[in-house]
């Protein structure tokens, strides 16, 4: 009999200047979602059910960039994506370009379980959601006033933002552009200073007491992204991966995560180099990410939890069967 473990995240690359109130709010949401997962695991739910339930909860809360509260495309619309993977049999499902499905992670699970395919996108994914009778809402449900404001700022600065939670007055947009070109001063991600870069993709990795693993990731993608842009979150092996050894969910600069097939590589390093979970995570964060910034959470099939990131902070939480529980942002 194994021991259960759960890890969740709400994005990596958190701005150190993020207002205290917002940090507290994010931690409250993380703690609530983590507790939901813990309760389900104690009640004997499967890893797959737990990652779906926890990610649904994170999607539904507008605090993070997934489901309600998703970042907006250039066109001011929401295009969400998500994936889920069952370590048992490495079954997987993914969706991109979802604009009306209330919980994209549940659509990803339906793709895995009810379609002959692994990945559906855009109109085809929307049609499938309707066939499956999933809850759909108007696109405006996902759009928050805060994100409308951020899109405006992103357009003025003519940059792509993951998200933008740091208050800036109108006059500060010039400062923003100046800061973006000032690479010498502080960390830069996608050409943007870290202080205006706060990706808030959500994800969850679980091992249940039967030793089965699962992972799920969900996102609205980049603020001011081109319509049609697909990031790492729906890509099996990049943003999400689960197998017998471990389950992993990544967040951060999507393009760097795709190039490094980050989630799969944690498992590959365990499998092919024989490293334990935390060492595998550390190795991948250090060696596999190029100049890109990202973070990840992971659980092993034997009930360990681990996380790693190479940026200023990551919204995260984890809990294990022996009573350990933690919610944090910084190192």
């Amino acid at each position: 009999m194994g021991r259960w473990a759960i890890a969740i995240h709400g994005g990596a690359g958190v701005d150190p200047n993020l207002p205290e109130q917002r940090q507290e709010e994010a931690k409250r949401v993380l703690a609530r979602c983590l507790q939901l997962g813990v309760d389900l695991l104690r009640a004997g739910s499967s890893a797959l059910d737990v990652v779906e339930a926890v990610v649904r909860e994170l999607e539904t809360d507008p605090c993070f960039n997934s489901g309600r509260g998703s970042a907006l495309t250039r066109a001011g619309t929401v295009e969400m994506e998500a994936s889920i993977m069952d370590g048992r049999g490495r079954r997987c499902g993914a969706v991109s370009g979802v604009s009306t499905v209330r919980n994209p992670v549940s659509l990803a699970r339906r793709v895995m379980e009810k379609s002959p395919h692994s990945y559906l996108a855009f109109a085809g994914a929307e049609d499938f959601a309707r066939d499956q009778g999933l809850e759909v809402v108007d696109n405006s449900y996902f759009i928050t006033d805060e994100n409308v404001g951020m899109l405006k700022l992103a357009k003025e600065a003519n940059t792509i933002l993951f998200d933008y939670r740091v208050p800036l007055s109108g006059a500060d947009t010039c400062a923003l552009a100046a800061a973006a070109s000032d690479n010498a001063n502080g960390m830069v991600m996608n050409g943007l200073p870290i202080s205006i870069y706060a990706p808030e993709t959500v994800g969850c990795a679980v091992v249940d007491s039967n030793g089965f693993t699962a992972a799920a990731t969900s996102t609205g993608g980049l603020m001011n992204k081109m319509t049609g842009r697909i990031g790492d979150s729906p890509l099996i092996g990049a943003g999400t991966y689960a197998c017998g050894l471990c389950a992993v969910s990544c967040t951060g600069e999507g393009e760097a995560i795709i190039r490094s097939t980050l989630a799969r590589d944690v498992a590959a390093v365990m499998e092919y180099k024989g490293l334990p979970l935390q060492e595998a995570v550390d190795f991948c964060v250090k060696e596999r990410l190029d100049e890109g910034f990202a973070g990840l959470i992971a659980v092993s099939g034997t009930g360990e939890v681990a996380y790693g990131f190479n940026c200023t902070g990551m919204f995260r939480g984890c809990a294990t069967e022996d009573g350990f529980m933690e919610v944090g942002i910084w190192e």
Binding site: G97, I160, M226, T227, G228, R229, E255
Partner: peptide, 15 residues
């Protein structure tokens, strides 16, 4: 030519 890696469907056609 884009800051992205992957474009799909109408967005890819527009590009």
């Amino acid at each position: 030519k884009t800051p992205h890696i992957y474009l799909g469907f109408h967005g890819a056609e527009a590009f």
